[in-house]
Design a binder for these strands. Sequence first.
DNA 1: CCGGATCAGTGACCGCCGTCACAGACTGGA
DNA 2: TCCAGTCTGTGACGGCGGTCACTGATCCGG
Lengths: 241, 241
Amino acid sequence: MRYIETRLRTPSDLPLSQVRRETFATTSLFATLTPEERQQIAALAVEKQFKAGDVLFHEGTPCDGLYLIGSGTVKISKTSSSGREIMLTVESAPSSVAEVPLFDNGMNPATVTALRDTVAFLVHIGDFQRFCRQHPEVPIKVLAVVGRRLRQLIGLIEAVTFGSVRQRLAGILLQAAQESVEGGAQIPLTHEELALRLGTVREVVSRNLARFQAEGIVRIVKRQIEIVDPAALRAEAETEF
Amino acid sequence: MRYIETRLRTPSDLPLSQVRRETFATTSLFATLTPEERQQIAALAVEKQFKAGDVLFHEGTPCDGLYLIGSGTVKISKTSSSGREIMLTVESAPSSVAEVPLFDNGMNPATVTALRDTVAFLVHIGDFQRFCRQHPEVPIKVLAVVGRRLRQLIGLIEAVTFGSVRQRLAGILLQAAQESVEGGAQIPLTHEELALRLGTVREVVSRNLARFQAEGIVRIVKRQIEIVDPAALRAEAETEF
DNA sequence: CCGGATCAGTGACCGCCGTCACAGACTGGA
DNA sequence: TCCAGTCTGTGACGGCGGTCACTGATCCGG
């Protein structure tokens, strides 16, 4: 795990880095705080840098604290012992991960990995709990975030239980196209990555993409997936189970 | 939806019913409150009675408030439009449901149905939010409960994604046997109910049970499933994916 | 421009699961 | 005791998804 700790504590009279201030200012968790209060908590955080592929923390390990994603993108995923993986969600800056074990004293429930180079700020669990006691509105914000995540998970369970790979693939393609710059129809994901998101394997993704292509819904040129008929994809994705 | 509202408000100088007091005393959400504070919130609750099969609330409807289960058992589930169902979790008294939408202003994410005759106490969302503002330790307790639920969901996703019906059936049989009175090996569930928990259909459960029986792991007499070889079941359930 | 490394496509195969269709077992009243 | 309603067991069958085993395409660094 490659990362660099810039410093353990920043004396609060020293100016904090730009990205640090912005991170703590834009996260919804601290939205209701005054700038001075935000400064307080920001000063407690440890900056960590991760390269794409680095693991922030593994499932089953004790919780360090709250990670605020300052820049970059991470995935939250579970891996089976046979190497298959399912991605629970992707979080891009500004965002936070590992809110849950902060309050129930459990282990990390999933693994978080950087998808791109990422800068995160770690607020140690003790510091955060102390801060929460002084600022009771913070746990309520955390609850909103956790609630959103819980809804996502329920949606995923529904999709995995009732839906087919084909349907979920359609959904992911649309989503990826939307997120990709300029909303273009180009999708910069490898089949392997798609398979991970879906909890399946590469070959199945290949086959389904081939079917989509045969039906004129997508076009594949030089490992680039291009959406030709978004409406058809949407219909596929939104097919009720 | 059959239920009976006993009274909207109980003047707090009047004695509350036994079950009401016990419900609010045993739920972990209010464990840190003084008896007087508990009395306050308990007095705000509306008692509702449900018969087995009654729906407390449906997914997609606005959230009434927090339900505390005073007695009985409920299931939290999602249903597909084609009628298949998956049970996310079962909650028996003392417990609570619908904590999530209290804080993120969303709709109910799932449907809650009474499995047995159930008495619940509904704290309206506004009352609860007001109470939380006065008692900041309550949201933290809620977070712990929601965290537990989130972990359960992640486990379910893992099981559904990587595991087989056979494995999950083994797990449910063990769990059901343990919960059933006297820890006996008798399981009072119908194949249909098992199928709902698993997100599959009756026939698949029948077949898997038949296989278990052929292998001498369970015995089925008169619609009663009896576990013969718990160790084998456990091995089956704990097989890593 | 070349050669290794990664990514993609595909065929074969098989087991599991979901569906349909019935027939038989069991239960709980009337 | 009988009947209606529910629950179970099973066979047939098709499709999808997971695994294996390759081959071919593409990319990138030297």
